[in-house]
Amino acid sequence: MEHEVYTSEPGGIPQLDVSTFPNQIFWVLVTLVVIYFILTRIGLPRIGAVLAERRGTIANDLAAAEELRLRATEAEAAYTQALADARAEAGRIVAAARAEIQADLDAATAHADAEIAAKAAESEKRIAAIRESAMASVTEVAREAAQDIVAAFGVKADAEMIAAGVTARVKG
């Protein structure tokens, strides 16, 4: 390795060419200062703001998601409540309708029973009347038949006596 100051001939090491050092140091310092100002004035505040904003957005979104979840739970509870209410209401309506129908039915049954009873009573009365008149007719026929029979035997019989005897027989 030559010891003379390097001047672009091959053999020396350019890194050790002291004559270029002030130039290198000057330009490196300029470069560093420029990079530093570009970063601190524009780049870093911007990236820092974006990162902070993103963190904020993510936090907000998580909070919003949590709130939505709560509201969904509430809505579900309300829905369940409404469903239960509707079910209870329906049950009430069904029971009321059933009671009403039952009442109508009972009234109709009672009415029909009363009618049937009335009709039966009337029929019974008429049957009794018929039986009565039939019984009277039988008695009458029997008395006449008895008088005719007695007359045929040629006996003059008392009509009163025959009537009493027939009546007693028919009854007995």
């Binding site: 890194q15 050790l16 270029t20 050092f21 290198q24 140091i25 490196v28 310092l29 560093l32």
Partner: peptide
């Protein structure tokens, strides 16, 4: 690759 540069840093 220049020592002057890295030495400055």
């Amino acid at each position: 690759s220049h020592v002057a540069v890295t030495a400055t840093l």
